[in-house]
Design a protein around this nucleic acid. Sequence first.
DNA 1: TTGATATTGAAAACCTTTTTCAATTATAGC
DNA 2: GCTATAATTGAAAAAGGTTTTCAATATCAA
Lengths: 148, 148
Amino acid sequence: MTKPDNAPNLYDQWLDSLSESGYRVTAPRRAIVEIVANSPRALGPLEIYDQGRAEYRGLGLVTVYRTLEKLEELGLVQRVHHPQGCHMYLRAADGHEHLVLCTSCGKAEYFSGDNIDKLTHAVARKTGFEIREHWLQLFGLCSDCKNK
Amino acid sequence: MTKPDNAPNLYDQWLDSLSESGYRVTAPRRAIVEIVANSPRALGPLEIYDQGRAEYRGLGLVTVYRTLEKLEELGLVQRVHHPQGCHMYLRAADGHEHLVLCTSCGKAEYFSGDNIDKLTHAVARKTGFEIREHWLQLFGLCSDCKNK
DNA sequence: TTGATATTGAAAACCTTTTTCAATTATAGC
DNA sequence: GCTATAATTGAAAAAGGTTTTCAATATCAA
Ligand SMILES: [Mn+2]
Ligand SMILES: [Mn+2]
Ligand SMILES: [Zn+2]
Ligand SMILES: [Zn+2]
């Protein structure tokens, strides 16, 4: 039920991944990783910068951009298109998953098991397109925001 | 099979719609409407500006932004999030429809009859979200680009 | 501990979108 | 067809957000 204490958390996993890829583990990167890995919402660069400075005083916004670039390259983080902004970042999906997003607080959750194959084929037949990918996002109120 | 010659086309419809809403029909607006209404692809402001100047020499980029704003407000045009850009504009959907987009030439087609209700309910049950909207876009190669 | 080099933040550059403003233009009413 | 009024226009400036440049600093393999 509960995770064993020694299970590596995202924070450690991400730092290890940076390290193993030859990138250095620095104080600004630790601050950024800490924030993004633990956020239940997709965050924009400026939000990460603001929250990040609480952990590492001298953090620069440029470093936020550069670090997100690397985390994305390593597949640890993914960009999310949100009505509130198109450059939001969230921990990456685990395989083929899509997002449900709370329109009130921004909370993001992945789900799997979409059932759009039939639809995909029908559209392919009707339009003549050869379909290769899809974007799907659901929006609504999370359970917290619903009860308020 | 073919549309009668007197069937109002999008160009005329949009100009009428502007007029009926109290907006004035001007040369720059005609140029912009002409281009966006007839485009098979979603276009960005700068593309519209470039193409528009071919029709109306003195067109300003500001006017493109302002006109798109009004066309969107009137429900004639909608914003499309594209991998190539998040501020692309396309004639609006007719009711509840979604897009298939060609990753090669950008061609956009609407389709209807999505079948994601079961999925929506399953996700609602599993996550506790009350789902109100969804975004769905399919990507692939259009029939022209496929045969090349 | 040291040295090669990756990383950093500040500042400048860049690019896109919005605001400001004086001149122009559409259109309703005559 | 004119005219008066108010909407619309494009240029220029301002505002935002992202990227590039660069000299100083910090990491980490040896
Ligand atoms: Mn899917
Ligand atoms: Mn739908
Ligand atoms: Zn919520
Ligand atoms: Zn977007």
